[in-house]
Design a binder for these strands. Structure first.
Lengths: 116, 116
DNA sequence: TTGACAATTGAACAGTTGTTCAATTATAAT
DNA sequence: ATTATAATTGAACAACTGTTCAATTGTCAA
């Protein structure tokens, strides 16, 4: 289970024990940090930002971001696995679109944060 | 400036050119992704979560998270550099507290996202 | 069927990240 | 002054990440 360990005693054991029950479960914690990890890449933010404006296929996104199709496709896969975008095949092309309304809100809040 | 490059032509050049002016500046993009990178670690989320409940010193946080003081201190430094927490020396101890009201909101939104 | 194009894939690479360990700084108590 | 405790620091290490490159899949048009 827990393989880390402290190397000290608590200074204010009362505070620690008051806070402990408020801490989130490890499971939730990993889901949260995994979500932020996905957001923590400038290429993926660009992709989400672009798809907020319009659905687009891989080639268009590659031109827009000035990257190779391969690099874009790899990152779209990350976003797809994280369920932030979805893919739809139309003829020869695969069109990507946003799959989650929370993302826009979170991006806006983060924007407020970095802009202040 | 730009050292990446496409390996293809746009399929829908009209869409690409319609979206292009809406794209954020590289500068802003990096600030955004840097912020999410900081949030994208379960240890740092635990620290922020704990400090939302009460300010605490390094030793208490180490006990609470069951980690070494060193590991906690390293991560607190990351949060300090990102201006998400601030440190105040009180006698023998250094007390850390939240330094940004946006963080709580963003954590809540992210929580809504991963919980649905 | 053949050829061209769109997209995906996996391996490889360099660059980055988080924890550990040992050493160090700084404060408080004796 | 000396000792003990709190916290920070830097180097080292393994684990992870993002892009490139080359090869592959699947679809359309001729």
């Amino acid at each position: 289970m827990e393989n880390k360990r402290t190397d000290c005693e608590a200074i204010n054991i009362d505070i620690v024990e008051k806070v402990r029950p408020k801490m989130p479960e490890m499971n939730l914690l990993y889901e949260l940090s995994d979500f932020f990890k996905v957001m923590g890449d400038s290429t993926r933010i660009q992709l989400l930002w672009a798809l907020e404006e319009s659905e687009m296929c891989v080639g268009d996104l590659a031109v827009l971001l000035n990257m190779t199709k391969s690099a874009v496709s790899h990152q779209l896969k990350v976003l797809r696995v994280a369920k932030l975008v979805r893919a739809e095949k139309k003829g020869k092309n695969v069109y990507y679109s946003l799959n989650d309304h929370h993302v826009k809100l979170i991006l806006e809040k983060a924007l407020e944060h970095v802009c202040e």
